[in-house]
Design a protein around this nucleic acid. Structure first.
Length: 307
DNA sequence: AGCCCGACCTGAAAGC
DNA sequence: TGCTTTCAGGTCGGGC
């Protein structure tokens, strides 16, 4: 499932594919994929035709194509979104299974004539929109220098691989929250990029059970969760991310190999690699939470002061 | 505002 | 065997 390392893997290939090119044609095969577009599919198409692409930026799990006119095409992979290049022959053929949107380049060659957005479960989305300045004045997304970000990404916090992430502010926010720490890791508005896999892995590495109220954890513990999360995501990125099946692949159709290194996610009933205890899975915030009963101790609720 | 929960969607896998 | 139910996931919008 595309979380930060998977999205960044895709972004790198996507950037190589589109930087410096121009859209000559766009076709939406499934309207649902542009459901967030003001004006619908026709507006989506109209705002892209003839536009030059400067590059691809990313914040958390959101990517966007920076267009030369200052607008941006936001791309979210959802659960099963993929970006795949098209040869001239493929670009002239009919839509493939699960192909939802197709894009053609002005300067088409035999080997590269455009690309497709493929998405089995259609949780992904595409949208062309205006951009707004970042609230902190720093670059909006990795790795472009522009300090303007697309409107839908404005509510998304910086991620753990973003050099401008204010980790002290993240911890201060968490210290004042009573929600389970895992719920806060999955929300994207304080720190972004975590999905169910890396949230569980970071919590295991920091020896924190996901049900623990964030405010009950020490400053040091919260810092450790961020440190472990950054380390794990960096590791995963170096291996092309986590693939369980053909739903997550990079722009070349290659799977990542980090699934082999997961400590808890998807390992319920198997032995903990640290202590040998049988790993457990519970429902938390309507998501599965995998953890080790003995390595990740249960913690008491915080004592609320006064009032 | 913080927090929780249902809806969205598809296909694989499990249940009957 | 074949039909039905369950499950997985990220984000959004609604309710309290």
């Amino acid at each position: 499932m595309p979380e930060l390392p998977e999205v960044e893997t895709v972004r790198r290939g996507f950037h190589e594919l589109v930087a410096g090119r121009q859209f000559s044609q766009v076709e939406v095969y499934r309207d649902r994929l542009v459901r967030t577009q003001l004006g619908g599919p026709s507006e989506f198409r109209a705002r892209l035709l003839g536009q030059n692409i400067e590059g691809v930026a990313r914040r958390g799990k959101f990517m966007w194509l920076a267009l030369a006119n200052g607008q941006a095409m936001v791309v979210h992979l959802g659960m099963s979104g993929q970006i795949r290049p098209l040869t001239k022959e493929q670009a002239a053929g009919p839509a493939r299974r699960h192909e939802r949107v197709r894009f053609w380049f002005q300067d088409a060659t035999e080997e590269l004539a455009g690309f497709s957005f493929i998405d089995q479960r259609t949780f992904g989305s595409l949208q062309v929109c205006d951009t707004v300045p970042t609230s902190d004045g720093f670059p909006a997304g990795w790795p472009l220098a522009s300090t303007h970000l697309p409107l839908p990404a404005a509510k998304i916090a910086r991620d753990l691989l973003d050099p401008y992430l204010d980790t002290a502010a993240v911890i201060n926010n968490w210290k004042q929250r009573v929600a389970p720490i895992k719920t806060l890791l999955l929300a994207q508005n304080v720190v972004s990029g975590f999905g169910n896999i890396y949230a569980d892995e970071a919590l295991f590495a920091a020896k924190v059970r996901g049900t623990t109220p964030a405010g009950a954890l020490s400053h040091k513990k919260l810092q450790d969760i961020l440190d472990q999360g950054a380390r794990i995501m960096t590791d995963s990125l170096s291996r092309g991310g986590t693939s369980f099946d053909a739903l997550y692949v990079d722009v070349n159709g290659e799977s990542g190999t980090f699934a082999d290194y997961l400590q808890v996610y998807g390992r319920a009933k198997q032995p903990c690699r640290v202590c040998g205890q049988e790993l457990k899975v519970i429902q938390l915030a309507k998501r599965s939470h995998h953890y080790c009963v003995s390595c990740q101790r249960s913690r008491s609720l915080p004592r609320l002061e006064g009032k």
